[in-house]
Structures are given as C-alpha cells and as structure tokens.
Amino acid sequence: MRKIDYTTFFFSFMGFFLFIFILIPILNLMLSSDPISIIHNLQDKEVMSSIFISIYSALIATLIALIFGVPFAYILARHDFKGKGFVESVVDIPVVIPHTVSGIALLLVFTSTGFLGEPLNRLGLVFTDAVPGIIIAMLFVSSSFVVNSAREGFENVDPRMEKVARTLGSGSLKTFFIITLPLVMRNIVVGSIMCWARAISEFGSIIILAYYPMTAPTLIYKRFIDFGLHNSTPVAVILISVCLLLFLVVRLVIGGWSAYDKN
C-alpha cells in the first residue's frame, strides 16, 4: 500500500474544508430549486432577455479588453519605463475597490453631463440605463484579467526569439503576429474567459450605472427583494447552468491545443 506522509494528509484535510465550503452552496442551489419553476422561468421573456444581455454585453466587454489590453500587456512585458509601477497599479485598481465605488466613479464621468458622457452623448452614445453603460461597467472591472494573463504569457516568450525572427527578415509587427502571438494564445484565451466570467457576474457597478436594461444578476436581485428567495432561485440556477455550460465548451475547445515548451 502506498504510504501518505502526514503533512500531505493534514494539508489535504484542511484544504478539503474550503473545497466543500464552496461546493455545498453551489450544489445545494442547483438541486434545491423546483424543476417545474425552472421550466416556467425558461419561458419567461424577462429572464431569458436578462441572461442574453449579460452574456452578450460581457462578450463585447471582453472583445474591447482584448483589442486594447493585448498591446498594453505586450508593452508592459517588454519595456521598462519611468512610472511603470504606477501604470501597473492603475490596471489593478478595479480589482481592489468596491464595485459600487466603481459604479459611482463611472457614473460621474459617463453621465450625460459628465466629462466623457457629454461629448459621447452628442454622438448618440448613451451610457446611463443603456447597454453601453453595462458594457463599460463590465470592462472597467474585468479588463485587468486580460492584461495580466497576456502579460504573463508575453514574459514567457524570450525576446531573443523575436530578435532571431527579425534577423531572418520578419518585421517587428509581423514577428508579433506569427511568432509571439501564437505562443501566447493560450494565456490570452484563459485571460479572456476569466474576463468574460467576471463581466457576467458583475453586479455592483451595473446597478448604479445601468439598472435597466436588466442583466441577470440585477434581475435575480430584483426578484429577491420583490418576491423573496423562492422566486429568485430558479433564475440563479438558469444563469449558473448557462455559464457552466459555456465554460465547459470553451475548456474543451482549448484543451485540444498543445502547450509549447520554451525551446
């Protein structure tokens, strides 16, 4: 029989508590709700549209985070400059401040009389109580996942490999796309999933900036306040199921990718 040393045993024992602490509420939630009310809710237009808005807005927020975040991550990974520490901490600020605070900060700037809201309003882009408001709230709180994950990937690609590609005649932008990016794709996809998940689950800043149109977390909150636990549970179960299903699909897709050794 294989012997397990006591440290491994003790640490596993301790870890197990945290594991079941997370697992029990989730399983309980999934199992406790009544299947008939779930089916009923699935036919509820309000529920389905809120889930759609959540997933769709989170996807847009993730795409925006990718477009701006990946080049940003590359600069942070490759260059040292004065004030880099400051720039890095700014990226992480949304993670450490309460989300309602993020919501207020965004509202002040993006309201129709705000510093950015006013000119954008004139271009026809409205943020308060509108989908763009949901998207920027999501972007604000979740973009750092893309930046940090991509940056870690870029740091793992030896800059000399890019230099070799360039000595062979590949320009710097081309080298980025055909050498560096493929090697970092896995990090970027993992970061995007985290970003997307975080965006779907965002609640605090969204209710301040854009209570309507309702996202799934907002709807769950509203039903809980208005009708109590019994009415909010089925919506929660549906949201969690849809998210888990989507993650499963994405995990399966990237699971087929091979990871590359450094050399």
Partner: peptide, 20 residues
C-alpha cells in the same frame, strides 16, 4: 539599422527555435 534589414544572422547557445 533595423534588424531585418541588416543581413546579419544569429545563432544562440539556447537555440531560440520557434516552438510552434
């Protein structure tokens, strides 16, 4: 001059092959 225009090749001790 930019690296790609020099016509200078490099071989490193740790190879720097493209892993993909």
């Amino acid at each position: 001059m930019e690296l790609e225009k020099r016509g200078v090749g490099v071989v490193y001790q740790d190879y720097m092959l493209f892993p993909h």
